[in-house]
Design a protein around this nucleic acid. Structure first.
Length: 400
RNA sequence: GGACAGGUGGCCGAGCGGCUAAUGGCAGCAGACUGUAAAUCUGCCGCCCCUUGUGGGCUACGGAGGUUCGAAUCCUCCCCUGUCCA
């Protein structure tokens, strides 16, 4: 079977010594005005069309929605979190249940974050050394140690389709010296992760369940981002992420960092910007050649009553919606907008009814996934650039 | 009819001589949320005025009097509520 010219997979990384994995990525079309591209990512758990938005399911659940609903949304890949699943229920439990897919009854793809973000978000509860990061559990205060090797092993046991290297998510602001130190440690950890992953894969004689992505750090310093990307590419990964973005810096800076990294990443490998973004950010990153994104905003904000619509944000709690019989978004095709009024959703939210959180989350995820669908369509059909400018403008206001 | 207990801002409920326009909680109003320590967090929440400030004025702790330099807080009477006894 011949592969498309730009197809890549673990088999092509160094096919002489490393057994192949089911993971494969091909670029199937490109936008002619921007760097946006259309791709297809094959995993052991299905094909993922890119650019893709991945709902975040930290603890083995995309909060407030069921796996059936995720399927209904046509989500093809979701995130899980190594740190959280390690603490509870534990990778041994999940392993004994046949892996995370079977455990959570989700047979589509799963990408697991390594715990690198928790290095950042739980800064007060962890200690960093060259060798490892030591966490104090937010659940019971117990102490735990994550080495890059351990993070890879846990993700392996979870059966992740795409594992992420353990990185140090650099906060903002970070001066050049600090950002470099942090980035270089992330690089050393990336190499250790790569080695650990390859050892595990060799042990399985090619039956590797997934693949491993590297993560570009470097704070808000374009030269560091570029340097990090180059070094990661030398190490060799099936995909490359840009992390440490949207941690407090202004948006143009985030975009510039992605651009700086992208310039040094191989065109035939997926690029993943971690943890973004607001709706208007999605096509902007796509225009920079980004294939994958994830963010808690649609889910967390949904639970907090903040709805994303095609004509701006809508905070369902506001008094002006108390007797508003319109749907959240008149041009939205989701079942929530087909069936329920703003007034009812407001009532549910204000009453603390859990159905409200679920419906809000479902709508927001639909909006995000539908936006990505449109992005893919416009890249394929042409007109992505005009979609981009129109969408970004339309989506940033307040809903009428 | 009698004995206790009690009446505090939209509601519940602290306070029991000055630090009290009055703790809290709820409700209400508004804001935040970016690889999820999040069904979380933050602010406002008597009325009026302005040169928007550790600014000024007014009204407020059932009602009416009183004690006191000063009362939501002490005293008297009245009204009301709850529980118990007849």
């Amino acid at each position: 079977m011949s592969q498309p010219a730009e197809a890549s997979g673990a088999g092509s990384v160094d096919s002489s010594s490393t057994p192949s994995t089911p993971f494969q990525f091909e670029v199937i079309d490109r936008d002619n005005a921007t760097k946006a591209r259309l791709g297809r990512m094959r995993t052991a758990h299905g094909v993922v069309e890119t650019p893709v938005f991945m709902p975040v399911g930290t603890a083995g659940t995309v909060k407030a929605v069921s796996q059936e609903q995720l399927e209904g949304l046509d989500a093809r890949i979701v995130l899980g979190n190594t740190y959280h699943l390690y603490l509870r229920p534990g990778e041994d439990v999940i392993g004994s249940m046949g892996g995370l897919h079977r455990f959570m009854a989700w047979d589509r793809a799963i990408l697991t974050d390594s715990g690198g973000y928790q290095v950042y978000s739980m800064a007060g509860l962890r200690k960093l050394t060259e060798e490892a990061v030591e966490f104090q559990s937010h659940l019971d205060g117990s102490r735990h140690r994550f080495t890059p090797e351990r993070a890879v092993e846990i993700q392996w046991l979870l059966g992740s389709d795409i594992s992420m290297v353990l990185d140090e998510c650099t906060g903002y602001p970070a001066g050049e010296v600090m950002a470099r130190q942090s980035m270089e440690r992330t690089l050393r950890w990336a190499r250790r992760s790569r080695d650990a992953f390859d050892r595990l894969r060799a042990k399985e004689h090619g039956a590797a369940p997934g693949t491993l992505f590297g993560i570009v750090q470097g704070g808000t310093h374009a030269d560091l981002r570029a340097e990090c990307a180059q070094a990661l590419v030398e190490t060799g990964f099936d995909g490359y992420a840009v992390g440490g973005v949207s941690v407090g810096e202004a948006r143009p800076l985030s975009l510039a960092m992605v651009e700086a990294a992208e310039a040094h990443l191989p065109p035939d490998r997926p690029r993943y910007v971690m943890g973004v973004g607001f709706p208007e950010e999605l096509p902007r990153y796509v225009a920079l050649g980004v294939d994958m994104m994830d963010c808690v905003l649609p889910t967390r904000n949904g639970r907090n009553g903040y709805l994303f619509t095609s004509c701006g944000r809508l905070r369902i709690r506001q008094a002006r919606f108390a007797a508003d019989s319109r749907p959240v978004d008149e041009s939205c095709g989701c079942f929530v907008c087909q069936r329920y009024s703003r007034a009812y959703l407001r009532h549910l939210f204000i009453s603390g009814e859990m159905l409200g959180r679920t419906l809000n989350t479902y709508h927001n995820l639909f909006f995000y996934l539908d936006t990505m669908r449109r992005i893919r369509e416009t890249i394929a059909a042409g007109g992505f650039a005009s979609f981009l400018s129109e969408f970004v403008h339309r989506v940033q206001g307040e809903v009428p």
